[in-house]
């Protein structure tokens, strides 16, 4: 199930929360949305889910609008940033509400999830901790085998073990059912493990939207040591995002033209020259820095 967002703008009185957002999430993709608090992530998710109306532009899910055609939501699982339930309901009541609301509810899948997340079925939801509420939301939204999962900070409140379990379950879901996942988070390390495509949103604008494969292919880090210092002009070439020097060892982050630069570096007879793994966070920091944004600042806000 794909998502298409076209020319989306959302204004709340004088404040523009989202400005001309365009993106496409192909079916079976895990799409990560990164941004600081107040960037517009939750607003975008609420518009995708049909909870809010856009000021301009449109969102379609599998060619349908969630606001105009609520039937499409029978295939969408949604984990909000904070789980709100009816305080008088027990965990069992929530199971019943979802079981009877979604035709594709799978008792087998439900049992599997209940084995992973051991929730007290007779407990009142108002007495559950934040982490338990998130676990309940995970069970409720995965048990009907959704074609699309929209997740807003889904691992907030989960301990590291449960967080890892959840991500494993999520990946199984994608592998087994081809579920499309739209996930918003602050945690780049998590996204690196699971995402096919990533976007950064800041102050309502989409700064960046690329596939993880392209990113990792385009941006590389070369580590090399030389007997003599390199001439400065070679490190100021187009495509060099960052250079760090410690003694005779250079760490050069480069985007595009990697082969040309490597060939040129080899002419200076390096003592060694290797390609080292670069983390998603490093890629973002260098890429966004080049575009006038400091990702660390963005994520730290």
């Amino acid at each position: 199930m794909n998502i298409v967002v076209h020319g989306l703008t959302k204004a709340f009185r004088e404040n523009t929360a989202l400005e001309n957002i365009n993106l496409e999430v192909p079916p079976g993709t895990v799409f990560g949305l990164v941004g600081p608090n107040g960037a517009g992530k939750t607003t975008l998710i609420k518009i995708i889910m049909g909870l809010l109306l856009p000021t301009r532009g449109f969102v379609s899910i599998g060619g349908r609008s969630a606001h105009q055609d609520p039937g499409v939501k029978s295939k969408i699982g949604y984990l909000a940033d904070y789980q709100r339930y009816y305080p008088g309901f027990k965990v069992n009541d929530m199971f019943r509400l979802y079981r009877e609301s979604y035709e594709t509810w799978s008792p087998e899948r439900f049992q599997e999830l209940c084995r992973v997340f051991d929730l007290p079925e007779n407990a009142k939801v108002k007495n559950l901790s934040k982490g338990m509420r998130t676990q309940l939301a995970i069970i409720l939204n995965l048990a009907f085998r959704p074609a699309l999962l929209v997740l807003d900070e889904p691992t907030a409140g989960l301990d590291p073990v449960l967080r890892r379990q959840f991500l494993t379950i999520l990946m199984d879901e994608v592998a087994e059912n081809g579920t499309t996942v739209f996930i918003s988070t602050h945690n780049l390390h998590e996204l690196e493990r699971i995402c096919d495509r990533l976007a950064v949103i800041h102050q309502g604008r989409l700064l960046f939207n690329e596939s993880l494969e392209d990113l990792k292919h385009k941006v590389r880090k070369i580590q090399a040591a030389f007997e003599n210092p390199l001439p400065p002009d070679i490190l100021q070439k187009t495509g060099v995002l960052n250079v760090e020097q410690q003694g005779r060892v250079y760490s050069i982050t480069v985007q595009d033209g990697i082969d040309e630069l490597t060939a040129e570096l080899r002419t200076f007879k390096p003592l060694f020259l290797d390609f080292v793994d670069i983390s998603l966070e490093e890629i973002f920091i260098h890429r966004m820095g080049g575009e006038g944004y400091e990702l660390k600042k963005i994520l730290a806000q």
Binding site: G50, L51, G71, V72, K73, S74, A80, Y85, S101, Y102
Partner: peptide, 9 residues
């Protein structure tokens, strides 16, 4: 929000 995210108009 919970209710409107479910498949009901």
């Amino acid at each position: 929000g919970l209710l409107l995210a479910m498949p009901y108009s």
